[in-house]
Amino acid sequence: MRQNPSFAMTDVAELRRLIDRNPWTTLVSSTDDGLVASHYAVLLDEDRDDLTVVGHVGRPDDLIHGLGERELLLVVQGPHGYVSPGWYGDGTQVPTWNFVSAHLTGVPEILSTEENLRVLDRLVARFENRMPQPRLLWEPPNDPDYIERLERGTVGFRLTPTKVVAKRKLSQNKTPEVVDTIIAELSSDGAYANPSLADEMRRAHDSMRSAR
């Protein structure tokens, strides 16, 4: 991802927030047969305060990616959306796409069976806890034999990135008045309404304004 200093995202707390809110990621590897991409949910490692993530892949994706043997690129995609030139006011303008994204690169560590089971348990709990009657991993009708068979079909990993490139392109190069207009349009019920992107823009620009 080509970086632009004006859009660079380097604050670890903000990057952790991005990962936590957008756990569905893309895993990319360069193999002898070319590029390979897969899609899996990840979580921040609860024992670390950096950008280390944990997750799993289903077999045989571990072999396809060479998991644990070669570098892996993990792409985190945050809120993104179309920005119309009509929102800029009069004058020559072109449309653009605002977005927040992070690329984490490193060689993953393969988890033990016990660690993988803990990650699987956390993943289920993370998303099921919002349900009115959560179906947690170790609760009936699941039984231990079923869970252990399930685990054997997966490979858990921990990725501590050795390279991080993150970008928050949210109209930082526009005037405050134009930014406010874009946020208002994204917050409306218009054709390109995008409340989550509006929230990210509001958060980023409030931080910029308070730092001035």
Rank of each mutant, 00 (worst) to 15 (best):
R2D: 06
F7S: 06
M9I: 00
V12N: 04
D20V: 13
R21C: 10
T26Q: 08
V36A: 12
L43G: 06
L44G: 05
R48I: 01
V54F: 10
R59L: 03
I64T: 15
G68L: 07
E69P: 00
E69H: 12
E69A: 14
L72H: 12
L74C: 13
V76K: 05
Y82I: 04
D90N: 10
T96S: 10
T96A: 02
S101W: 02
S101V: 12
V107D: 11
P108A: 10
I110F: 06
L111M: 06
S112L: 08
R122I: 03
R122Q: 13
R130S: 13
R130D: 14
P132G: 09
P132S: 09
P140F: 09
N142C: 01
D143E: 13
E148C: 02
R152V: 01
V155A: 00
G156N: 01
G156Q: 03
G156L: 04
F157I: 04
V164D: 04
V165N: 03
A166V: 06
K169I: 00
L170W: 02
Q172M: 01
N173S: 11
K174A: 02
P176R: 07
V178C: 11
V179C: 11
I182L: 11
L186H: 13
S188Y: 02
A191G: 07
A191Q: 15
L197C: 04
E200S: 11
A204Q: 04
H205Q: 05
H205F: 05
H205Y: 01
S207I: 06
S207G: 07
S207K: 13
S207M: 05
A211H: 07
